[in-house]
Amino acid sequence: MLRNSPPGDADIGTLEGRATNLRRHMLTMARGQGAGYIGQGLGIADTLAALYFHELRYDPSDVTWAERDRFLLSTGHYSIALWAALAEAGILPVNELSTYGADDSRLEMSTLDTTPGVELIGGSLGHGLGQAVGQALGLRLQKSVARVFVELSDGEMQEGSTWEAAMSASHFKLDGLVALVDCNGIQADGPVVLDMEPVADKWRAFGWDVSEIDGNDMNAIVGALMLARSQNGKPTAIILRTLPGKGVARIEASEKAHFFRVDVKEWDGIIADFEQSVGAKQ
């Protein structure tokens, strides 16, 4: 059955509940191997909840449906968030999540496209936007109304290929293309090592419509996605200011946020704290 088609009114509370479920799934996954890129995953959880339960048109029972909207996760190491979203969407079984990162699991630490629902091999950073441009061009050429959403990160903007792709998207007037730029302020070597500011001005200068929002505010995300539906001949970049580890206090506070590893006992404590904070909000 088609989801989000036609797009309904956003129920912010319900979407926030979905985001909480995604965070819960991610904690389950990280506990399995004791580690993972959970800081990034928790930070992008709200955006993925908004996409999969409000904005993207897709059929969970047919992930190859030609008219589906595409979501490309360029930062393959955010896979933990994608697996959570695909499980919550009914594309992957929830009981498979605990295999994240284990040998022979389909839920790799960095995405391969052999897992259902994955639209590209992410992880070699700088690949996603160009492939999204190609998909948007191809869909338009075939007169499809499907749109292409691509997530990329602040660190990833240091790859020159990102800007090659950004130039071509506006040149080809791809208004069916939306880039979700996760600015969480961290990269492999720590806090962003090469200043990327002013991020929004860079995208504007490359010919994109730009929204710059709190990427952990569901109202703001839904609003920016609504603006991006405008067919004005320009691609849209949504600059998401996110907090790594969002929603899980001990991960928010961690300095190990690029790759987070603790022992199982500590995970149990983290999960208990998370459930307590979720319960307190309700």
Binding site: G126, Q142, E164, S168
Partner: peptide, 14 residues
């Protein structure tokens, strides 16, 4: 780089 990336994206749409 973008030439090949765009080609890959086009191929994904058939």
């Amino acid at each position: 780089q973008n030439l090949v990336a765009v080609a890959a994206g086009l191929a994904r749409t058939g």
